[in-house]
Structure formats: structure tokens, C-alpha cells
Amino acid sequence: MKHHEVITPGPAGTGLDARLGRRLAELRTEHGWSLGELAERSGLSKSTLSRAERAETSPTAALLNRLCNIYGRTMSQLLSEVEAAPAPLLRAADQQVWEDRAAGFVRRSVSPPHGGLRGELVEGRLAAGADLSYDRPPVPGLEQHLWVLDGTLAVTAEGTEHQLDAGDCLRFRVWGPTRFRCAGPAPARYVLAVVRP
């Protein structure tokens, strides 16, 4: 079995967090917004945004989701913008793994990154007891197909909670808040096919 590198916070100025922080600062600058203006638009504090842009902290999934919503990108698109030039083949050992330890969430970008494609595959893993909520979609109207590989998962979309077991697949469009919850006792692993409108 190949080892997948899990991206975790490192010293400021190095690694994925630093590249991601620089890209977030570039996006804010491209829009001509101050930290205060971005804070108003995102509902995040200026200090939280500043720490993320300076890579003083590893951003959470919820924070990245809000910023993706503001910038009109999926999380995979944002993460691919800080990687090397796109290739049509992405070996398992080279697939980017990102972790939100506080939420018990691990996200692996399975599809080769490419900003111009509408679809992508993501592998998600939630620890038993994990409860991950997003207050808005990264891109309104995003189509998602969630296929549970292992464990059980409760997914709330459009105000309806769906209980999914291994092998079940849920298709939905994301217009509002969503929630992914793994009650346990085992962790949940799933594939998420994401298609931009």
C-alpha cells in the first residue's frame, strides 16, 4: 500500500498552508478588497483571515468553504491553484490529502487538478463522532453525488437528513447549508463526485 502524505500545518512560509495563504491573499487583492471588506463579505474575523493568509494557522474546512463561496470556486479548484501545472494522470501516491484535525475530516483530491474542468472526484473520511457543517455552498447549485464506501453517514442537504450506509449513493444540488455527520461506531469513507453548474 502506498503512503499518502497528509498535509498538516508546518512552519510559516513553507508547504501547502503557505502556498494556500499566498493564493488567498492574491484572490483578495485581485478583487480589490481590504481584509475588513473580506471579513464583512465572509462573516469571518479580520484576524482569522489575516492568520490564514500569513499561514500562521492551518485553515479549517469551514473557513475554506466560506472563502470558496466568496471567490466562486470549489475547494479542489482552490487547492489546485497552489499546485504545479495540471496533468491528465494523478498517481495515488501524488494525490493531495488535506486534513481538518479539529473536525475529524480528511479530504483526498482524487481527480487530476485542472481549473477548467467541471467535474472532480474527492475521497472523504470522517472519524466516528465527526460532525462537519457548511453554512453555504462553495458554488451555488453545485451538483454532488455522494457514494458511501465504508461506515454510515448522515447527510443533510436542503433541510432533509439522509441516513446512508455502505453502498448507498445520494445525488443533490447544494443551494444552502449542508452537514456531514458520522455517528459511528466506525469511521465513514465516501467518494464525492462534484460537478460545477
Rank of each mutant, 00 (worst) to 15 (best):
M1D: 09
E5F: 02
I7R: 13
T8E: 10
P9G: 15
P9N: 15
G10L: 13
G10Y: 07
A12R: 10
T14D: 12
G15Q: 10
L16F: 15
R19H: 14
L20I: 02
L20G: 00
R23S: 04
A25N: 07
A25V: 03
A25G: 04
E26Y: 12
L27Y: 03
R28W: 10
R28I: 10
T29C: 07
T29D: 12
T29M: 14
T29A: 10
H31R: 14
G32W: 02
W33Y: 03
L35G: 11
L35H: 09
L38T: 08
E40Y: 03
R41W: 00
L44Q: 03
S45I: 01
T48Y: 03
T48A: 11
S50R: 03
S50W: 05
R54I: 04
R54Y: 01
A55W: 01
A55F: 00
T57V: 05
A62L: 04
L64F: 02
L67F: 06
C68R: 05
I70M: 01
Y71L: 01
Y71S: 02
T74N: 07
Q77M: 11
L78Q: 06
L78M: 11
L79S: 08
E81S: 14
V82L: 01
E83F: 15
A87S: 11
L89H: 14
L89I: 15
L90V: 12
L90Q: 09
A92L: 15
A92C: 08
Q95P: 04
Q96K: 13
Q96W: 00
V97K: 05
E99N: 10
D100H: 12
R101L: 12
R101P: 09
A103N: 02
G104F: 00
F105K: 04
F105W: 15
S109H: 14
S109E: 12
V110D: 00
S111Y: 07
P113M: 06
H114K: 07
G116W: 08
L117R: 10
E123S: 01
A127D: 11
A127G: 08
A128G: 09
G129I: 00
G129Y: 00
G129V: 00
G129L: 00
L132H: 10
L132Q: 13
S133F: 06
S133R: 13
D135Y: 09
R136C: 07
R136E: 02
P137W: 11
V139G: 04
G141D: 12
L142H: 08
L146S: 09
L146W: 02
V148E: 05
T152C: 14
L153H: 08
A154L: 05
A154I: 07
A157L: 03
E158I: 13
G159S: 08
E161P: 12
H162W: 04
H162L: 00
A166T: 08
F172G: 04
V174I: 11
R181L: 07
C182R: 02
A183T: 08
R189W: 00
Y190H: 13
A193Y: 09
R196Y: 06
R196I: 04
